[in-house]
């Protein structure tokens, strides 16, 4: 399936892009993360949470094809 992945803050500094679309055969968030870790080797040194369809999700969550976002620690306010 084709998934849009968004990167923010210091994660976007690692990936050198704010957003991309990937055609993936992976089934879970965890599997997608492994794929991204191999694509961007500095990613594993970073602290971030993952959102699917704008909700934070656990690693064992199944991919639905909805938008994924890699979110570094929040620092609003």
């Amino acid at each position: 399936m084709l998934i849009t992945i968004k990167y923010f803050g210091q994660i976007a500094e690692v990936t050198q892009k704010d957003e991309e679309q990937l055609e993936v055969s992976e089934n879970t968030v965890s599997e997608l993360l492994s794929l991204l870790n191999s694509k961007y080797s500095d990613l594993k040194n970073k602290d971030f949470q993952i959102a699917q369809h704008q909700e934070l999700v656990a690693l064992d969550t199944e991919l639905t094809g909805a938008e994924i976002a890699l979110l570094p620690p929040f620092s609003g306010g």
């Binding site: 923010f8 803050g9 979110l71 570094p72 929040f74 620092s75 609003g76 306010g77």
Partner: peptide
């Protein structure tokens, strides 16, 4: 409200 904003809203400060 302020504590919820700090904890839950994906805003990033550089």
């Amino acid at each position: 409200i302020v504590e919820a904003i700090k904890a839950d809203v994906p805003v990033f400060g550089k």
